[in-house]
Design a binder for these strands. Structure first.
Lengths: 240, 240
DNA sequence: CTGCGTGTGTATCCTGGCGCACCGACGGCA
DNA sequence: TGCCGTCGGTGCGCCAGGATACACACGCAG
């Protein structure tokens, strides 16, 4: 998960499959380019494809009303978009917004379903991933409620940095405000605080992470916690 | 879901199974009495049994730290406790606290797993239930963040009333404060407001819902939304 | 009938974030 | 070179809810 300019053209979930299953699965995937701002799913909408981001990433957003939006999860090369299919449903509960442009693997829902039936390894892996996601959802609820904006922002930047595979991010205050469910001016203050502490630098939407360790320090424990769960259940469970 | 003094001794998920599967499933269940305050699961702990509350109900609580606790879901006769088993994991992500004492059906994790393998109907049903739960988790995150205490309290009382199958609840302000992640004094104010509007009446921990319709009015849309999703995916999907 | 524990009302001060609004500054484009 | 759209800094009044603290009231037990 070291930042790099290009980033690996792989998806961790797919990499975790046994060789056989992986080859068969990949044969049915195609690479598509996700465009920034593209909406891959709307709440209540039908899911036509499953996406495995490579160097792109996607925000999952709960949309209570026009003014009440909150990002509740993020999917990058460590995850997949299209969870409900694992549960036998083809309906999306959330809005899926492409937040980092780039390539992703894509597979039609029906084909995905067939692979799922045939590969116990795939089932087990995605079951674990779904568990991680639920864990994160409940954590987000508490984190958003209890933690201060500055810490939440730091956490969010770290999560984004991981998924962008880069320490250069392109994010306006406006956009961050939407993701975190706060005012734009609130982001300005929090971001200034982080910049003053030399943890980040930004200029008209270009954010650079200067001090990753410091940023972790400034974030709430939720960042570390999320990663720990992912590591335990996805990375370490790989080789049982 | 009409309130009644005794409440039905059934669990809606189990009732939704095809006769055959249900009989076989019930044969492996035993009825146990859940005691108020009992902890059925700790975060990270092993799940030994699956519970299907009958007239009891259980809170799922995210526990960031001693002072940061938040109820993120509630399980009553409409649901089940032990989701992760559906995903092939036997670890609980959340604290499960018995909040309404009463009977529940219980089945050992391993036996549950066997039934799950053998019954596609059970798989499909619980898949849908898990989807509903994820939906609710993401909604709770946004609701807790955006909505005011009074509305959240109203919502919470309604949810509890449904699961208690009664319009008489036993809940101290202290307890409500913990569930909603706020101060006790905050609950006192919100509860007084609801009482002044003749929606509830309470006295030393005994709360009576006087005007259910009014309470729904006073709650945020999240109560209605949660129920709608449940109806669509569990109740209506029953007879396709 | 008295004492104590539990449950509730209330008060004061504090703070984070909101709503609204305005302005300055940078940078792409003509 | 000058315009304009995007982006970010700032100011002000406001309010929900936090922290802390105290007081009272009911009801059970002794």
């Amino acid at each position: 998960m070291k930042p790099s300019t290009l980033g690996p053209m792989t998806n961790h979930l797919i990499d975790s499959l046994p060789h056989q299953d992986r080859a068969s699965f990949l044969a049915d995937c195609e690479v598509v380019d996700l465009v920034f701002g593209e909406v891959l799913a709307e709440p209540g909408g039908r899911i036509s494809h499953v996406y495995f981001p490579l160097n792109s990433f996607i925000s999952l957003i709960a949309n209570l009303s026009d003014s009440e939006r909150l990002e509740v999860a993020m999917v990058g090369s460590e995850g997949m978009l299209g969870m409900p299919l694992i549960l036998g449903l083809d309906e999306s509960p959330l809005r899926a917004l492409v937040q980092g442009a780039g390539p992703a693997l894509r597979i039609p829902a029906a084909v995905f379903g067939r692979h799922l039936e045939q590969s116990p390894a795939l089932q087990a892996l995605l079951g674990r991933y779904l568990y991680v996601l639920m864990h994160q959802l409940s954590r987000v609820a508490a984190c958003t409620h209890f933690h201060q904006l500055e810490a939440r922002l730091a956490r969010w930047l770290l999560m984004t940095q991981d998924r962008a595979h880069s320490d250069q991010l392109h994010l306006t205050h406006e956009f961050l405000a939407m993701m975190l469910g706060v005012r734009r001016a609130g982001i300005t203050l929090a971001a200034m605080a982080l910049q003053t502490r030399r943890l980040i630098r930004y200029h008209r939407g270009d954010i650079t992470v200067l001090d990753r360790a410091g940023l972790i320090e400034a974030s709430c424990g939720c960042y570390a916690s999320d990663r720990r769960i992912y590591r335990q259940l996805i990375i370490e469970a790989e080789a049982p």
